[in-house]
Lab assay of single mutants.
Amino acid sequence: LADDRTLLMAGVSHDLRTPLTRIRLATEMMSEQDGYLAESINKDIEECNAIIEQFIDYLR
């Protein structure tokens, strides 16, 4: 059971955070005209990261 939990934490961490990191990188490359959009996307990314952290904390 502990091994399954560790594997799940690693999978969640990698499989969800990697795309979020790519999205954040894309927002950094957006033009200044789209700053409001990038800010909104980054806020959503932070919310997703917080949910992931809560899930990982729960698994521990």
Rank of each mutant, 00 (worst) to 15 (best):
S31G: 05
M9I: 10
G11Q: 00
Y58P: 15
Q54D: 00
Y58E: 12
I56K: 14
T21Y: 02
I23Q: 01
R17Y: 00
L37W: 00
L25R: 10
V12E: 10
A38H: 04
A50G: 07
A2P: 12
D3V: 06
L20T: 13
S40K: 15
M29S: 04
H14K: 01
T18S: 00
D34Q: 12
E39Q: 06
R17T: 10
H14C: 01
L25S: 09
L25E: 15
L37K: 10
D44Q: 01
I51Y: 07
Q33M: 04
L7G: 05
A10G: 01
E39L: 14
I51R: 11
Y36I: 07
G35V: 06
L7A: 06
L1W: 11
D57G: 09
A10W: 00
L37F: 15
G35T: 06
P19M: 15
A38D: 13
E32R: 07
I51L: 15
D4Q: 11
M30C: 06
L59M: 12
I41W: 15
S40G: 11
T21W: 11
Q54S: 11
I23C: 01
L1N: 13
G11E: 08
D3M: 10
L7E: 14
R17E: 04
R22K: 02
N42R: 05
L16T: 07
S31C: 06
I52M: 12
H14T: 01
E53M: 12
E28D: 07
T6W: 15
L20P: 06
D3W: 14
D15E: 03
I56L: 04
N42S: 00
D57N: 04
E46S: 00
Y36E: 09
M29D: 04
R5Y: 09
N49I: 02
M30N: 09
T18Q: 08
F55T: 02
I52L: 06
L59C: 00
E28K: 15
Y58M: 15
T6D: 04
I23A: 08
R22V: 05
R17N: 02
Q33L: 05
T27E: 10
T27C: 03
R24W: 15
S31K: 06
E46V: 08
R5C: 08
E47H: 14
M30V: 15
R24I: 12
Y58T: 00
C48E: 02
E46M: 03
D57K: 10
M30E: 11
D15F: 01
F55I: 10
T21A: 08
Y36M: 11
D57Y: 13
Y36W: 08
E28C: 09
N42Q: 04
L8S: 02
S13G: 08
R60A: 02
T18E: 15
A50C: 10
M30D: 15
F55M: 03
E39M: 08
Q33A: 07
L1Q: 11
M29W: 03
A10N: 06
L7F: 13
M9P: 12
N42H: 09
S31Y: 07
L25F: 08
M30G: 05
S13Q: 13
I23P: 03
K43L: 03
S13R: 11
A2G: 11
E47L: 10
M9C: 12
L16K: 14
I23E: 02
L16N: 01
L16Y: 03
Y36A: 03
T6R: 02
R24S: 04
N42A: 15
I45S: 10
L20G: 09
D34F: 14
L16W: 14
E39G: 13
L59E: 09
R5H: 07
E53W: 15
I41C: 03
T27P: 10
I56R: 00
A10R: 00
M9V: 15
K43V: 12
R17F: 10
T27K: 13
M9W: 11
D4H: 14
T6P: 12
I52A: 15
Q33F: 06
S40R: 02
G11P: 12
P19K: 09
S31N: 06
A38R: 02
I45P: 09
T18Y: 02
L37R: 14
A2K: 07
S31L: 07
D44S: 13
T27L: 02
E28Y: 10
V12P: 01
Y58G: 04
E53V: 04
L59T: 14
A26I: 06
E32F: 06
L1T: 13
E28R: 14
R17G: 06
A50Y: 15
D4V: 12
E47T: 02
I52Y: 06
G35I: 07
I51V: 12
D57T: 07
T21E: 15
D57I: 12
Q54M: 11
E53S: 14
S31V: 05
I41S: 13
S40P: 12
L16C: 02
G35E: 07
L20S: 08
A2D: 06
A26Y: 05
I51Q: 11
L25Q: 01
L7W: 05
D44P: 07
D44R: 04
E53C: 12
A2S: 09
D44V: 08
H14N: 01
R24C: 08
L37Q: 15
L7P: 08
M9H: 04
T6V: 09
T6A: 00
